[in-house]
Amino acid sequence: MAVRGLVLELGGRRLLDGVDLDVPAGQVTGLAGESGSGKTLTGMAVLGLPPQGACLSGSIRYGGRELVGLGARAHNALRGKELAMVFQDPTASLHPMLSIGGQLTDHVRHHLRLSRRQARARALEVLEQVRVPSPEQALRRYPHEFSGGQLQRIAIAIAIACRPRVLVADEPTTALDVTVQAGIMRLLRQLCEELDLAVLLVTHDLAVMSSLADTIAVMRTGAVVEHGPRRDVIRTPQHPYTRSLVEALPDRARRPDGAR
């Protein structure tokens, strides 16, 4: 996926100002920046979910198709099947009154046109893939019966169930404790490599980027101010804003290989 000159205007304000970004398959592309920098807006625009009333221009190329200006029906056909998202709060994407099995099987039956038996087999497969304990039992349980880390794994399972090519992960570890964060980051890295996923990791936490991303793009006030390989951005940042973010990192995160 390639984003070029992406502009988003809302209520007379330019919230994205010519964003350029490459999100290649088999790599984690980190999109970092402070609150209000435009990073989440960029992720939502990639998914065809800009704010209501927004005017979007520029280019988002995916699989030889131009997504800017694509109709709602065409976007709906892509979203969930080829373009997927994981939110910061997994409860935002899980219905509290439906079993995990129901939510997973409904999702894959809708997008992949599978039978009930095939959908259940696929649900078990992805729960095993994201290492949810006792997948058979998990299918019968409800969201409130799981911990935050397990819920995030289930949300990731739903996101990858239809074998998407692009995964947008919006602050996927922020609500979790440090130990659980590390497990989710390892899982995202593993899925990226095994499934040849193009992962766009949106976060304000440059320390997370330093341990997970292959490339890092730094956003400020709606524009990408620096974009390059993780080592280069962390070790020799060129923009003053990036330098200020790197200087705030703990020493371990500034090492050439981060936590990987």
Rank of each mutant, 00 (worst) to 15 (best):
R4Y: 13
V7T: 11
V7L: 05
L8P: 01
L10A: 00
G18F: 13
D20V: 01
G30F: 14
G30H: 03
G36K: 07
M44G: 13
A54V: 00
L56S: 03
G69R: 04
L70Q: 15
A72P: 01
G80R: 14
K81A: 13
M85P: 11
Q88V: 10
P96N: 01
G101H: 06
Q103I: 03
D106N: 11
H107V: 15
H110V: 15
R113D: 12
L114D: 11
R116M: 05
R117S: 13
A123I: 13
A123P: 03
A123G: 13
L124G: 07
L124C: 08
Q129A: 15
Q129G: 04
R131P: 05
S134P: 03
E136H: 14
Q137E: 15
R141K: 15
R141H: 15
P143W: 09
P143D: 12
H144W: 14
F146G: 07
S147P: 09
Q152N: 12
A159L: 11
I160S: 12
R165C: 12
L167R: 15
P172N: 01
T179Q: 07
V180K: 02
A182Y: 07
G183T: 06
R186Y: 00
L188R: 02
R189A: 09
Q190N: 09
Q190V: 04
Q190H: 10
L191E: 07
L191W: 01
L191S: 06
T203H: 01
T203V: 12
D205G: 04
M209R: 08
M209N: 06
L212C: 10
D214A: 12
R220F: 09
R220T: 08
A223V: 11
A223W: 04
G228R: 01
P229G: 03
I234A: 03
R235Q: 15
Q238R: 15
Q238S: 10
S244L: 05
L249T: 13
D251M: 06
A253Q: 07
P256L: 12
G258V: 06
